[in-house]
């Protein structure tokens, strides 16, 4: 007991010493630091302001080469799949519903909080429309760069798939056609998730 008290006293004394040293140092400081409002933190950290496109409302992204290959899958042949999805209008509804459901989904909504949702709605529609061979070109980025830094997992991907399934169901896409479409998307899993399997054993 006595030893503990002594220990605490020692800690208290050294903390007091440190504090007084800090205040001494502060009092001796020759110049007052500039007021915070005067510091341009964006400049300090090299942040440049992004301005939305006046027409589309989308934020600019780093330059990239546009190509349908960025969609990550070869399109279906024929118009059977496009018809099963209700043509361009149906595909637009499905893409928008998938995004809306995901933005409201407590499991994954945080991923979209600082995201350019206008651009996502447009590029997701284009990607679906291109792969379903409904007469669109995909103008977005490839899957790895467009998902960089999102920290997504397989669990997030499964949640998104469930939202897409709900959107397809809502638009009366037959289940076999839903799966045929998912078959085009499923091989991209490692390109749209960033955090893979948790290791069972720590790395040596």
């Amino acid at each position: 007991m006595g030893r503990t008290m002594k220990g605490i006293r020692v800690i208290a004394i050294s903390a007091a010493l440190m504090l007084s040293a800090a205040s001494l140092h502060a009092q001796q400081a020759p110049q007052e630091p500039p007021p915070e409002a005067a510091v341009d933190w964006d400049k300090e950290f090299g942040v440049t302001e992004k301005t939305r496109d006046p027409v589309t409302g989308e934020l600019p992204v780093d330059p990239y080469v546009q190509s349908n290959a960025n969609a990550g899958a070869a399109p279906f042949k024929g118009d059977g799949m496009a018809r099963a999805f209700g043509g361009k209008d149906g595909i637009r509804r499905i893409a928008q519903s998938t995004v809306a459901r995901s933005e409201a989904d407590p499991r994954i909504k945080a991923i979209f909080e600082k995201h350019d949702m206008g651009r996502l709605r447009r590029t997701l529609f284009e990607q679906f429309c291109y792969i379903l061979n409904a007469g669109c070109d995909y103008t977005g980025r490839a899957m790895p760069p467009s998902h960089k830094g999102l920290g997504t997992t397989r669990a997030d991907l499964n949640a998104l798939v469930e939202n897409l399934q709900a959107a397809m169901r809502e638009n009366r896409v037959p289940f076999a056609a839903q799966n045929r479409f998912l078959a085009k998307l499923a091989p991209m899993d490692r390109h749209v998730t960033e955090r893979g399997e948790k290791r069972l054993l720590p790395r040596r």
């Binding site: 400081a29 630091p33 915070e36």
Partner: peptide, 12 residues
Amino acid sequence: MPFSTPKLILHG
């Protein structure tokens, strides 16, 4: 000058 101390501490 004496006001700088609390401000620094606050910042910290």
